[in-house]
Each structure stands twice: as structure tokens, then as C-alpha cells.
Design a protein around this nucleic acid. Structure first.
Lengths: 203, 203
DNA sequence: CTTAAAATCCCTATTTGTAGGGATTTTTTT
DNA sequence: AAAAAAATCCCTACAAATAGGGATTTTAAG
């Protein structure tokens, strides 16, 4: 018997997956969560074999939840279920310890397939993900400070505002901006903002 | 018997809804589509009573599809199924002729409820939508040109680039930008870009 | 302890966008 | 045909971000 918990922002999708899995005798859904924090609690209580989780979620996203769960329960397998096939998200989920990555535009049959494979200690990464290792070029590693600043940029703050919030000089914020641009190789002349906003939205 | 077609970007969600609706004897799913164009074709062929459609879809989005369908088949009821409760999207769907609007984070039970109500010529708009008429403040109406420019802003183009693309002066683009800012009552480049990007993403 | 990485700060110059004003032409609506 | 709305263009001034350079201090990692 395979035990499973589902974490998803959209209740409709959870309901759908549950309906679908009801036909499968060998799979039991132990519970569901609508955000990362609830998911972590749920895993502690129910200790499922497999967690199927969205990446973009309130409170603590899929990546953050995966890290916590893997630290506490290394044997719990995690499958990411995402809208986007962004190299960075996939990479981060892999790093966090996920055993699978499925796109929401694939069928539930594939989800079922993935659950069964992962339950047998296998890995399942969506076919449509060509990006995986190839495009994951030079290991995009932003420092903690840089991520913090990127987040604030995404929230629409100006350099001056960010400087005030973090109690540092505007010059420092500008330097970080430049470094982020360099690391991300955003040739796009302008607009780190777009990058920050899209990032926030995509996972 | 209620006949239905489903249009959704994410196959997983379609599969889930189908599984869920299989238990309901009075509802038949006639078909499914992953984008707006296929949806329109499908409606022409199958002529369902009800269409359950995502807003954000490739090719032709939910709003555009709704308009076309309502023109050709005024009796076909349309229920929008969306991730976001943005006043503008709801407003546009209502204008296009939708009879319902449900959020993806509500349960499939609510979807079922909506289908039954709409089948009986009722309207169903999600409870969580407080926005509907209230926040839909001063009728955000962007002109065609303004929308076009907003789209290009969302794609990361600079005013000069937009000017070159549309064969107009940079001054004109700047004026449009200012007018958009004024209409939207937002201040700052950041916010404009965020608005453009979010809009692109959200429906 | 020493080194490398991260974080901090400053300078100059240029580009891009915002904010205010005004103005003309084309299209659409009445 | 007249009025309203949309689209076009230009001016000045200012704010914010990018791009190049250099420099110091903290904080980890070896």
C-alpha cells in the first residue's frame, strides 16, 4: 500500500486528484494541505511514504517544505507538481531532495505512474523537461543578501527604499543589483524587475 | 442531462474534474480542450449546454473564447474557472457573457454546484469574490493602443523599442505610458511593469 | 591564520522612465 | 457636421536604474 499526502494551492486540483486516485486500490491519500506549513505538520502527523506537492504555495513554498521534510524524514519521497518547467525551479527541487517533477499540463495518468515509480525508489522527471541538467548552466547561486534584495525589487521597492529597509546605503543596494544582473546574465539591458516579478510568480 | 465541455491549460486538472464528475449521473462531459481555439471548435461540433473554461489559456484566452462562443451560441452557458480574483478579469468575463466565475482554490463540490445552478439558468459567482462590482471602481478601460503598449512593456521592451516596433515616436509611447499610469492610478515604473507582467500571467 | 567570498560603500556617466505642461491629427460617436 | 475620444508628437525637468570603475570591512571556509 502506498501512502500519500497532497499539497496544493488549488483545492479543485486536490479534489480532482483524490477522485482519480480513488480507483487505485494500492494508493491511500492520508491528507491534504493548502500551504507549506500545513504540509509539514501533516507529514509529521501522518508520515506518508510519498508527498505530492505544488511548488508555488503560500507560507512556505514547495522547495522550502521539501527541505524541511527531507531533513526530518529522509525516507519520505517527494514529487513536485508544477506549472512551469523553469530550469531553476527544477534544479532547486532536485537539490532539496525531490524524487520527481511533473508538470500540471501532463495527465493524471502520468502522476499515477510517477507515484508508483517513486514508491519503488525510482525517480520520475517529466519528459518535457529537457532543461534539467543542460540548461542549468552555471549554477545560478545568489547569496542570501542578493535574494533578499531581489525579493524587495520584485515587491516594487526602489533602491533607496530597499536601502532604508535594510539599513544599508543606496550604493550597496546598487552594487547588489549589478551583481545580480551579472550572475543572471540578464542581457535585457533594463529590467531586473520583470525577472524578480516572474520569479515570484513562477514558483 | 447536462452536457459539458472543459477547457483548461492543465491536463491534470481536466483529468481530475472528469474523474470527479463521473460519479454524477446527470452530467456528461462531451469533450475537453487545452486552448481557446480548440475550445471554440469543440463547442461548434458538440454544442454543449455548459462550458467550463480557464481564463488563462494559450492561443485565445477564456475571455476571447467566451465572446466568440456567446456570439455563435447565445444559449451556451459559460463558467469561468480561474486562479485569480482580479476585478478586471471578472469584469471582462461578465461582459463577455459568462454566467459564473469560480476560483481554482475552491472545491470541486462548488464547481458541481455552479454547473447545476447555471444549467438551471442561474448565475454563480464565487463567494470569495468581493471585488465584483465594488472594487471594479472606475471602469478600467484601456484603449486598444494602450493595451498593445502595455503588452510590450510586459515583454520587457523599452519605450524606444516599442516606438520602433509600432512605427511611432518615442514621445507617443511615453504619452501612452503616462495615460495608462493615470488610468490605473499607479505610480512608478516598477508598478507598471509588475502590472503588465501580472496581467500577462494572470489571464 | 589566511584566504576567498560576501557585504558594504562611493564616483562618474548614460539611459530610461516619470511628471508637468501643451498641441495636432485621426477616428469614432452622436 | 459637431463633439468626444483616441492617437499622435514635442518640451523641460527630475528620479531612478544601468554600467563602468575602485575600495574597505565582515564573515565564512580552508
Amino acid at each position: 500500500m502506498i501512502t500519500l499526502v497532497i499539497a496544493e494551492d488549488h483545492q479543485a486540483l486536490i479534489d480532482g486528484i483524490r477522485s482519480f486516485l480513488e480507483y487505485e486500490e494500492d494508493i491511500t491519500v492520508l491528507g491534504e494541505a493548502n500551504d507549506g506549513e500545513i504540509l509539514i505538520d501533516l507529514v509529521r502527523k501522518k508520515q506518508p511514504q510519498i508527498v505530492l506537492t505544488d511548488i508555488r504555495m503560500p507560507k512556505c513554498d514547495g522547495i522550502c517544505a521539501t527541505k524541511t521534510i527531507k531533513k526530518e524524514f529522509p525516507n519520505t519521497k517527494i514529487i513536485a507538481f508544477s506549472m512551469f518547467d523553469q530550469a531553476e525551479a527544477i534544479h532547486q527541487m532536485k537539490d532539496a531532495g525531490a524524487s520527481g517533477y511533473i508538470m500540471k499540463n501532463s495527465s493524471l495518468k502520468k502522476v499515477l505512474e510517477a507515484i508508483r515509480i517513486v514508491a519503488k525508489n525510482g525517480d520520475y522527471f517529466d519528459d518535457s523537461i529537457t532543461t534539467t541538467d543542460v540548461t542549468s548552466k552555471e549554477e545560478i547561486v545568489l547569496s542570501t543578501r542578493e535574494k533578499e534584495i531581489l525579493r524587495l525589487i520584485g515587491e516594487g521597492k526602489t533602491s533607496q527604499e530597499i536601502a532604508d529597509i535594510l539599513f544599508i546605503g543606496k550604493s550597496t543596494v546598487d552594487t547588489h543589483r549589478k551583481n545580480i544582473l551579472k550572475k543572471m546574465n540578464i542581457q535585457g539591458k533594463t529590467d531586473l524587475i520583470r525577472f524578480a516579478v516572474e520569479r515570484k510568480y513562477d514558483f
